[in-house]
Amino acid sequence: MRKLLYVLPLLAALVLAGCGKQESDLPVNTRLGGDFTLTDQNGEPFSAEKLKGQVSILFFGYTHCPDICPAVLAQVAQVYRHLEEEGVADQVQPVFITFDPERDTAAHLKEYLPWFKADMIGLTGSLEQIRAVAEQYGVVFIKDQEAGEQGYLFTHSDYIYLLDEQARVRKLYPADFKIDEVVTDVESLL
């Protein structure tokens, strides 16, 4: 009888663990993120509320960026393809926010992003709107004064943000992130 007293709670815990969803141990970052409204590649308003109910991989950049931004886009697409193979890509939303609204119009994003085959949402807006969102995520972007043959460039930070189903930031990655690490983290949030 005394043994039962020890065994029963253990059994109950095991049953509960089997029934419930395993909580990810990625901490919630309460300093970054928040509500915003921008414009998606179809010209429709897009609020942060729409990110809820799915896991998001969110990152900032601009399409005239020759090196880091296309590399990040390609890597995020790789993550997405891995998740497709796992059959969970429909629960994950890659989101690209431009900080170059002058050239990255909704129409341009609509032409540019599908090539990556990752069902990406592209967001643009007024410079004020984008600056406000960038501040929420601690993103710095500075338009270079000197425009060369290539037009103007930006000096910018390049983190990638993993958001959970409540659109809370759970992890940041550098631009040269490991594909497997992000895939594992995404799956821990599903």
Binding site: P66, D67, I68, A71, V140, F141, I142, D144, G148, Q150, L153, T155, H156, S157, D158, A175, D176
Partner: peptide
């Protein structure tokens, strides 16, 4: 501050036997 800045690389001088790599996220050809 952790931000990344691109600029014109005017030249790369290579002494005999030296190599220089243009790599993703680093110096590159545009």
């Amino acid at each position: 501050d952790g931000t990344r800045k691109m600029g014109h690389l005017h030249h790369v001088m290579l002494a005999p036997g030296e190599s220089f790599s243009f790599l993703p996220g680093g110096d590159h050809l545009m």
